[in-house]
Design a protein around this nucleic acid. Sequence first.
DNA 1: ATTCGAATATTTTTT
DNA 2: ATATTCGAAT
Length: 848
Amino acid sequence: MTEPNKRANLDLSGYQPAAGGIAARARASAAPAYLSGLNPEQREAVESLDGPVLVLAGAGTGKTRVLTTRIAHILSTGRARPAEILSVTFTNKAAREMKLRLGQMLGQAVEGMPWLGTFHSIGGRILRYHAELVQLTSNFTVLDTDDQIRLLKQLLAADNIDDKRWPARMLAGLIDGWKNRGLTPSQVPAGEAASFGNGRGGKLYAAYQERLKVLNAADFGDLLLENIRLFREHPDVLRQYQGRFKFILVDEYQDTNVAQYLWLRLLSQAPSQSSLPGSTRQSITSREDGSPGLDASRRPGDDDKASGGVQTTAPKNICCVGDDDQSIYGWRGAEVDNILRFDHDFPGAKVIRLERNYRSTGHILAAASHLIAHNEGRLGKTLRTEDVDGEMVTVTGAWDSEEEARGIGEEIEQLQRQGHKLNEIAILVRASFQMREFEDRFVTLGLPYRVIGGPRFYERAEIRDALAYLRVINSPADDLAFERIVNVPKRGLGDATVQMLHDHARKRKIPLFEAARLVIDTDEMKPKARSSLRGLIENFERWQVQRNALSHTELAEIVLDESGYTEMWQKDRSADAAGRLENLKELVRSMEEFENLQGFLEHISLVMDRDGAADEDAVSVMTLHSAKGLEFETVFLPGWEEGLFPHQRALDDQGRAGLEEERRLAHVGITRARRRAKLYFATNRRIHGTWNTTIPSRFLDELPQANVEITESKGGSGWGGMSGYGPSRFDNVESFGSSYSTPGWQRAQAQRGKNGGGGRSGGGGFSESSSPFSDRGASPGARRAPFTIEGELVAKSTGAESDFTLSDRVFHQKFGYGQVTKIDGNKLTIAFDKAGEKKVVDSFVQRV
DNA sequence: ATTCGAATATTTTTT
DNA sequence: ATATTCGAAT
């Protein structure tokens, strides 16, 4: 749907702020065209430009339209220029959509809003401008989850912590959580910090942050947390941004976490003049100093009365749009409280409710509303529609998950025969393992389908490997990247070598790459391994030079070729090797979108999402979470069983709050449907390989009978009753199609490979990823010469003079005792008593 | 150092 | 049931 030449639409270069005349005309006479067609609430949300505004926009009430129109309104009334509007979304998809619709609305009016993007991309962008102030350089690497965990593993190993008992994953989760709550290592409540690794959790977090600085890297959480730290420690920088952003718009406000809230809050204050230089800092930090308890950190707004009141500056024109009933990311730190307490956090806020739904028919809307009404702790909205009642929501029971898939497959075929588009049909599941059954079924039926949100393109091993090569070229200090590819393809550089490099690097406090460069001039390694390592280092040094002469895409091709990486897959006989090669090509192709290697690497981890070409007519299969914001004519919602939906784990971990979030998820699911919502439950489901008998979800009981129809329930009486669903009701398994020949995992795999990896137009391909910014040339990151780091490091490592002196008696782990005969910087030549004369690096020997 | 095999954990959701 | 991870064997 959203295809190529959007770039043209978005290239809004020649924009000039509208002259006052237009604004005046807009106010005086007929409203501008973009305002017509809005209902009164929407229009109020668009036109209330001054002061804080919270727009409670229920599902399908035109949220995006309001946001984009509001921006258009700000621009065309001349209240601000594009670069003065900060507009944050939660996902790249949402950001892209807003850009697209803005472009359509304004014609070619505006050169891309530079500050329209996700929290993370904007945070990262600001961070790159001021990287030095947070102990980074502007070409810092953004670590993904995988890098993060590998790094933590190393730290655990260094601390002799059993990573069986204390998995790195768990620590990563904890650290993530802390960062989501805006807590730096020193601010983590003592009790929580001690809960990991025999009380060493806090120390590990601190060590991790330190390592990140050394690696010149930031993880996702840092993009915000370090931003907050930057603003707090450098009020002048904060003021600069406060002054710049005349208007702030936030999408999906219910999904913001504490860190995002703090960030927004800092930015949303009017730039404080000289009167209160440290005020922002104090007002925010006072809380953490005061009470590090759980409650304090969970409720950032609590102290606002005290310190926020002291604040003399009025909050700026911030407009948050969200729906508390669609908050489904609590598990990852989102605070529904943020939206529930908005008027407390932003005094004098105007709250506007959008309750008119333009999407769904009466029955669907009624069912969804009735369901969500079971939640406490919501602001409460009453969605209404002027549409017809339409078809009732259906609930269908199946004997097991296979039958469920069969039944849905059949219904889809029937819809197809009736002329419905497959593109207008979606299957929304609670957990991704449910998708397999449908894929299996659709493969046998030959029904085109598209899986949305599976493993991401950049998470594929071959992509990560290729990126690692480029990362090392870009930033030789990137140890994680270096370690990833030292021995990929196999070069005979195994654990022993890596371990040795690590020891050396740690002792000298230099990156692995640098350590390797030194070691290859010594006799530290066996000749074979050494020449192999030397070859690799020389390759990298050559590529680093070539980088200046070649385009980044050419460079990538050369690197993949000369490193032997491509060859490795060409020789690989396994089934998916071809797909991987195809992916690599795709990667190179995608690089063309970026100005240079630097820019590519900067955005790749943030932007590389995939929403494959949607031109093929196919059923969409995805999780409920990834369905948020989408809509379909027909929505199938399988798996409404206790334990799966609501998910057991949500219940166990979060209790009542978890249940409410699950219910919101159910609400999101139903409200995706325009005309048909079809719920299913299976009496038997296979979980972890074993069959379990399940009971229907309590959510089914919470649906209003008047809008729901039970189907396929031959003789089924028990609707609405607690225990209405005995297995006996489903004895007649033949109700669905009979010829189910198990298609087998292989087939599904093959199909998946074809769809995903094979570069087909199916689901898996890498999208024409557009950068969230079209910062041609103007990019702050591109400004810095890429070699700064290298220069520093080289200087550091070669400049250090060894503190050994000639004829020192020394001991070496491998070669035994010997005497120093020559000193060259930090490289020593030593006559060993047994091993003869060897060159070694000084950090490997000790004086005796 | 690499490969193969067994044991083990993993499965909610994602920027 | 599957994928990943760890350990032992070659």
